[in-house]
Amino acid sequence: MSDLLILRIVAKLLIPYILLFGLYVQTHGDFGPGGGFQAGVIFASGFILYALVFGVANARRVVPPRLMATLIALGVLLFAGVGLAALLMGGNYLEYAVFADQPARGNHIGIWLVELGVGITVSAVMLTIFLTIAGRGR
């Protein structure tokens, strides 16, 4: 596959935009279409494209499985930690309104953080699944 020059160049051109779009969906999910899940999938698809074009072995160097496992865990921790933080700040679990003096602002912060956690976990899980399946039989 490394011989396909056009593919490699197009992929190199596309991947940054895919990642950027992923980040856009991630950060604007709280008041537009999108959110952590979709963003995570889009973000992961950038790396998956890379793996398809440049080979799984290269992709593994970019995203080592250990890192992925850590990211999966960290994403979940972020999600659950935000909930706990709300609890520590005097609200119910996941009650973001307590994060700022104005409930709307607090909600904004809380949702943003939670979605980030979701995004990290989803993209890491997607990549792990892809690399695991792609790595079978080698």
């Binding site: 496992a69 850590t70 999966i72 865990a73 960290l74 994403g75 979940v76 921790l77 659950a80 930690g81 909930g83 706990l84 679990y93």
Partner: peptide
């Protein structure tokens, strides 16, 4: 629910 939930990623880490 949350206490065991948080422990799961910690176990991974």
């Amino acid at each position: 629910v949350v206490v065991p939930l948080i422990s799961a990623p910690l176990c991974v880490l």
